[in-house]
Amino acid sequence: MPETQLPPVRGLTVKQPWAWAITTGKNVENRSWKVPEKYIGATLLVHAGLQPAPGAFQDERILALPAMPEVLAAGAVLAVARLAGCHREEDGCCAPWGDADAFHWQLEDVRPLPEPLQYTGALSLWTPSPALLQKVQAVR
């Protein structure tokens, strides 16, 4: 990538409570697919999906985090992060957040937004609208 070309900003929809966990220290997002190399270094908008992850609210890693809010945002951008890398799980790496048989998307510089920004996410990596990017900049 030429030095003048910055990685794109993309949105990543994550089911709750995993999206909330990213705002409180979860630094790995588990996916079944490898992120394309061109997105390494990209800014990600961490978006909470509308549907919760089945069984995740009883996951020991979630229960070990600070007290969860009574109501978790859904259908909203919660944080901004940098996608620092992606690798296949190997020998229990990325504990405690990395799952076996998954690609580990490494997140760095996670900055929760002061308030969730309602927005419709999508599957895979999605392109945020210019209006959403302006709102994110305004509240950061």
Rank of each mutant, 00 (worst) to 15 (best):
P36E: 00
N30C: 01
N27G: 03
M1S: 15
P114W: 01
L83N: 12
Y119K: 03
W20A: 05
H47F: 12
N30E: 08
P36M: 01
E60S: 13
P2T: 03
L132C: 15
W20H: 04
L125R: 00
Q137P: 01
R31L: 00
Q16T: 13
Q134G: 11
Q58P: 02
G98R: 06
A102V: 01
L125M: 09
E60H: 09
L12N: 04
P96C: 00
P17N: 05
W126S: 02
K38G: 02
L83H: 12
A73L: 00
Q16F: 12
A42M: 07
Q58N: 08
G92N: 14
A138V: 12
L117N: 13
R10M: 07
D59L: 06
A64Q: 13
G121E: 03
L133T: 09
M1R: 10
P2K: 04
E29F: 14
R140Q: 08
P52W: 05
L123M: 12
A84E: 04
A73C: 05
A42L: 10
I62E: 08
L12A: 13
L50M: 11
G41M: 03
V28A: 00
R88A: 15
R61G: 14
G121K: 04
W126T: 09
A95N: 00
L12M: 10
P112H: 08
R61Y: 14
L107C: 01
G55R: 12
K15P: 07
G92Y: 06
N30T: 03
H104S: 01
A42Y: 06
I22F: 12
E3S: 11
Q5A: 12
L133D: 02
S32H: 11
G75Q: 07
G92P: 02
P8F: 07
S129Q: 05
W105N: 02
V77W: 04
